[in-house]
Each structure stands twice: as structure tokens, then as C-alpha cells.
Amino acid sequence: MSGDMPHPAARVVMNSGEISRALRRVAHEILERNKGPEGVVLMGIPSRGVPLARRLADSLSEIEDVTIPVGALDVTMHRDDLRRQPTRMIARTLVPSGGIDDKIVVLVDDVLYSGRTIRAALEALSDLGRPRAVQLAVLVDRGHRELPIRADFVGKNLPTATAERVHVRLSESDAEADEVRISGGDR
């Protein structure tokens, strides 16, 4: 809907170079925090968390020369706003072959906003198994949390007004060049 229409007043806050540098830094931070890649599993939240998780996994393999398991975690059926929105499409959940029990699961999403998606993700995750630890990596943290949730790894902190909208575009999912834009508000 509005997310697919180029907004006249949109301004670019991250270009493709900045996105890839941020992801590489996040990959380093994940390794640093967990003292290496041992037990790390990346779970992307559809739709754009999934390609971001794959990119992070590629960076991790480049740095450490290991293969990091990547999965997808659909949270739709755990959302608390299903009755407030039109019916949402459901994406597939893919658990990596090694499972998530006793692993360090890093949830990956594009934008952290109210925190409600992540709450739903934590619940969805507990139906799949019991990780040793769960961490959160996001490309953009735009603030305005409604729940006690914070990200462990942030590509870019982006102060925004609630009236503004953040648009993430990735070549894998949008057939567009990588870009983060802000539109709306009074700027």
C-alpha cells in the first residue's frame, strides 16, 4: 500500500553502501558478544528479516569460515493486532536442520519500532524449542517502543516522529536497490 508508493517527500537515510557496512559491523558484534560463531543460529522475520539474516550469515561465514544456520520465523499467528488490521498473509517458518534447542538464536528484522513484532517472535520461538539465549539484530531502530524490548545489535539508530514512516528496500525482496527512506511527518 503506502509502502510501495514512492513518497514525494521521502529522504534517503541509508544507501546500499551504508547498509552493507552496517551489516558487516553487526556481524562482527554478534561474534564478539558470543565469543565466536559457536551455536549461533539466525532466524529472519519475514519478509525483509529473511534476506537480512542471509546477508548476516554470509558476512559471518566470511569472517569465521564457518556456515551459520539460517531460518525464517513467521510471527503472524502470534500477533496481538490481528483484529485491528485486515487479514494478513502468513509466511513459512523454516527451522534450520539443527533445530534451535540450546542454540543462541539471533532474531533478525528490518525495523524495530513498537516491539510488538518481537514479542510475537519470542512467543513463536518458544513453540519451536528452547534456545539457550535469544538476541535481536535490526537494521534500523526507530524508537517509540511500546514494550520492554531492546535490540542487541543495531545497524542504525534513527530518531523519528511517529507520523513518519520508515521504508526499507532490499534487492532480494523488492527488486530495487538497497535503501532506507523516511517519509511523512512535518519535515
Partner: peptide, 19 residues
């Protein structure tokens, strides 16, 4: 889904994920 919007045919995906 919102019963009020049920007949409008919106897919919902982009409301949250796109923006």
C-alpha cells in the same frame, strides 16, 4: 482481521512490513 475492513480486500502485508 478487522471485521470492518474484511470486505475491502487489503492484503495487510505492506501495512506493517513495507513501512
Amino acid at each position: 482481521g478487522d471485521p470492518q475492513q474484511h470486505s475491502q480486500g487489503v492484503s495487510g502485508q505492506d501495512l506493517d512490513r513495507g513501512a
